[in-house]
Amino acid sequence: MRHECIQSTPCWRKGGERHDCAFIVEDQDLLGFKGMSVVRVQLLFSFIHDSTTIPCAFVEWFQQYSQRPDPDTGMWIVRPETSGHHDTPVLSVIHLDSLLWLAHLLPIFASTSLPYNFSHVDSLDAFRAFYINKYIDHHTFELLSLE
């Protein structure tokens, strides 16, 4: 198995921000994506408590759009999870051990037209729903194909 680096930085290669998305395990008893969620890592940090370093991530949550993958693509659909009437994103701090693997999200364009100067760094903020790309690598395909 290869090693993956989850990154979150305000400036990536002299360009815009980079905040990777990742799978988080919520229920180990459920197979595949049914026991997982997707988060966007906003900040990586750690703190020391009783001489123990605790690595954490400040994350923005995505929620499943349905109980099954999309019948046309075979990919799960997620959308940013919000609370309240003002579409406030759901944010929390999690232990780094909860993160399993990088998640690659593909925007669902629908009838959305993009401005000429649209930047890829704005994709996760500009769209309302995303496919989870299970074809990005072998490990992700196997992870999302479990039922």
Results as ranks from 00 to 15, higher is better:
Asp97Asn: 15
Phe45Thr: 10
Gln42Val: 07
Tyr65Leu: 10
Pro69Asn: 14
Ser83His: 15
Val121Ala: 01
Leu144Thr: 11
Leu100Val: 15
Phe58Cys: 03
Phe141Tyr: 15
Glu142Ala: 05
Glu17Asp: 10
Glu81Arg: 13
Ile6Gln: 07
Leu96Arg: 00
Thr82Ile: 09
Thr112Lys: 15
Leu100Thr: 11
Asn117Ser: 12
Gly16Trp: 00
Ser66Ile: 05
Thr112Glu: 14
Arg13Cys: 15
Glu4Tyr: 13
Val121Tyr: 01
Leu43Tyr: 05
Thr53His: 04
His86Ala: 14
Pro55Val: 05
Asn117Met: 05
Met75Gly: 07
Gln42Trp: 02
Cys11His: 03
Trp12Gln: 02
Tyr131Gly: 02
His139Thr: 12
Leu106Ala: 04
Tyr65Ala: 09
Tyr65Pro: 00
Cys21Trp: 02
Pro71Thr: 07
Ala22Val: 05
Ile24His: 04
Tyr65Cys: 09
Gly74Met: 12
Thr73Cys: 10
Tyr65Met: 08
Glu147Thr: 07
Val78Glu: 05
Cys11Leu: 11
Pro10Gln: 09
Val121Gly: 00
Leu105Pro: 00
Phe130Gly: 04
Arg18Thr: 00
Ile132Cys: 01
Asp87Arg: 15
Ser119Asp: 04
Leu106Met: 12
Ile24Asn: 01
Leu106His: 02
Val121Ile: 11
Asn133Leu: 04
Leu44Ile: 14
Ile77Thr: 08
Leu106Ser: 12
Ile48Cys: 08
Gln64Asn: 12
Leu96Cys: 03
Thr82Ser: 09
Cys5Ala: 10
Ala57Val: 03
His19Asp: 03
Met1Lys: 10
His49Cys: 12
Ala129Cys: 08
Gly74Gln: 13
Tyr135Leu: 13
His86Cys: 07
Thr52Arg: 13
Asp29Ser: 13
Leu30Arg: 15
Tyr65Gly: 05
Val78Thr: 07
Phe23Ser: 03
Glu60Ala: 14
Phe127Thr: 02
His138Gln: 13
Ala103Asp: 06
Gln64Pro: 08
Asn117Lys: 05
His95Asn: 11
Met36Asp: 02
Thr9Trp: 01
Phe45Leu: 12
Leu102Met: 07
